[in-house]
Amino acid sequence: MNLLPLFQWFEATPIGTVVRESLWMFPVIECVHLLALAMLGGAVLVVDLRLLGLGLRAQPIAELARKVNPWMVGSLAAIVATGIPMFLSESVKCYYSPPFWYKMGLLALAATFAFTVRRRVLADCSRPVLGRMTAAVSLALWFGVGFSGRWIAFY
């Protein structure tokens, strides 16, 4: 299946056109995207570190996860909401960019993992080894998303 026509259509959407033709819109959206990345990173890290037995060790895992969850969901929503207009403004470039496809694949994996396995492990953390493995997988996946995201600019 050839997805190129679809990506050309994405690029021709009104939002894509407006963002692409504006001098300041892309940079401004990108800044919000970056700030939300920092927040998402913090929210994921503090809980994964706790699962690894580091950081806020005096806090029960389930309680810490519950407190941090709104920040994680909120920043993820902000990242997606800012990522879509940026994508629409240069969809065809993304289509030809290998890092973009890695990023999307890893993002799907990371988000699915976060809201299924990790969520369950955080709710019932009676098995420390499972907790550590979950944290390692979560950190690796999110790192992959961020890393490949940055490389869209280069390749």
Partner: peptide
């Protein structure tokens, strides 16, 4: 450049959690 951007999560993420605690909007029970 990627190192510079991704360590933002480690640095600003942690700083933001402390700042939100200081503001009284996050980690309130800790």
């Amino acid at each position: 450049e990627t190192t510079h951007v991704l360590t933002l999560c480690l640095f600003l993420g942690m700083i933001a959690l402390l700042d939100f605690r200081l503001l009284g909007v996050g980690l309130r029970g800790v």
